[in-house]
């Protein structure tokens, strides 16, 4: 079948213009990449570590609130039973939660926000998946560049007869594609690096305030847990002391309860102390990440992340042992 040619008065101008544009754009892209390197690799690894450790701290902070609330509820129920004969006693008002559902929700929202933030930072600096998506897109663009070669090179030679206008061979097309690849990754990594510096700098005061708050909460929870254990321990002992004629076997069981409660109190307090350590380490690690994202003191970040991992692991182990 004979090819149909569409007559066009600006035929040669159009060809020259389009062909020149294509080659010049490709050349500009190639030239633009020389001498610039933006690497995210060390920061990406640190950010991913920070994100993982943050998730551990967040998960265990939420568990600490639930545990503390349940512990408090147990004490409240025991007290409500003791107060059953008090005038005005009502089951729906006999207990008061340590943290109301709204107060728990306020904490959970911010903690989940912190987790999402750390994951977003990790996503920003993660290059593997992004590069794969980009390479797929570039393969298509590269194929189109080669198909442009045959059509664009002749009009360029007509347009610039005195110049040695490069015809885009397959190899050169590949070279241009490589240049585009380098430039785009430079742009993406550069934006990611700038974004990481800005986001961590903007967020650091909030992260520090949040860590101070969780630390403060944990301090209060430790104090309340002390009450939640001391009260039943003392009440139990009062029961034993006020019933001297108790059956000896039952007496042994009741005394064993005292020892069990004291051991549980010690373990619970250690968990909350561990949460405080982890939260303080989280604040320091974020401050170090902010500095490193701004090009300062990468060694400090390494040290702070190691501390965070250590405290996060301790904390995770504590809560795993109670599940």
């Amino acid at each position: 079948m004979k090819k149909t040619t569409i007559p066009c008065p600006v035929n040669s101008h159009a060809r020259r213009f389009l062909g020149a544009c294509a080659i010049l754009v490709a050349t500009a892209l190639a030239l633009g990449t020389t001498g610039c390197v933006v690497t995210l690799s060390p920061l990406a690894k640190s950010t991913a570590t920070f994100s993982t450790a943050t998730a551990t701290v967040v998960t265990n902070s939420e568990a600490a609130y639930r545990t503390a609330n349940q512990l408090h509820q147990d004490r409240e129920v025991a007290a409500a039973i003791d107060n059953y004969d008090t005038p005005g006693w009502r089951p729906d008002t006999a207990t008061t939660p340590l943290l109301t559902p709204d107060q728990i929700a306020a904490r959970t929202k911010v903690l989940e926000g912190l987790k999402a933030y750390s994951q977003a930072l990790a996503g920003l600096t993660e290059t593997k998946n992004r590069n794969q998506a980009f390479d797929t897109a570039l393969t298509t663009a590269g194929a189109n560049l080669q198909s442009l070669n045959a059509a664009a090179a002749p009009p360029l030679k007509t347009l610039f007869p005195s110049l040695s206008v490069p015809s885009v061979s397959a190899a050169e097309s590949g070279g241009v594609a490589t240049a585009i690849d380098a430039l785009a990754k430079l742009l993406m990594n550069g934006r990611a690096k700038q974004g990481l510096a800005k986001a961590t700098t903007d967020m650091d005061p909030s992260v520090q305030a949040l860590c101070t708050l969780i630390d403060s909460d944990a301090h209060i929870l430790r104090r309340q847990a002390d009450r939640d254990y001391q009260t039943p321990i003392t009440n139990e002992n009062q029961f034993i002391q006020n019933n001297p004629k108790m059956d000896p076997a039952l007496r042994r069981v009741e005394i064993a309860k005292l020892i069990t409660l004291a051991a549980q109190q010690k373990e619970n307090d250690a968990m909350l102390a561990s949460l405080q350590n982890a939260v303080q380490a989280l604040g320091k690690a974020h401050a170090a990440l902010t500095e490193a994202a701004n090009g300062k003191d990468p060694e400090n970040l390494k040290q702070r992340l190691n501390e965070l991992i250590q405290f996060g692991t301790d904390l995770g182990a504590f809560y795993a042992s109670t599940q």
Binding site: A14, R15, L18, G19, C21, A22, A120, G123, L124, R130, A133, F134, A137, L138, T140, A141, G142, A143, N144, L145, S147, L148, A151, A152, P155, I180, A184, L187, M188, R191, A192, G195, A199
Partner: peptide, 26 residues
Amino acid sequence: LQTSINSITKNITTAGKVLSSITTVL
């Protein structure tokens, strides 16, 4: 920011389409 970075990949896809269109026009 993530959307903006991802758009670079999309821009390359668009550029590929533009190149393809130029070839067709030529």
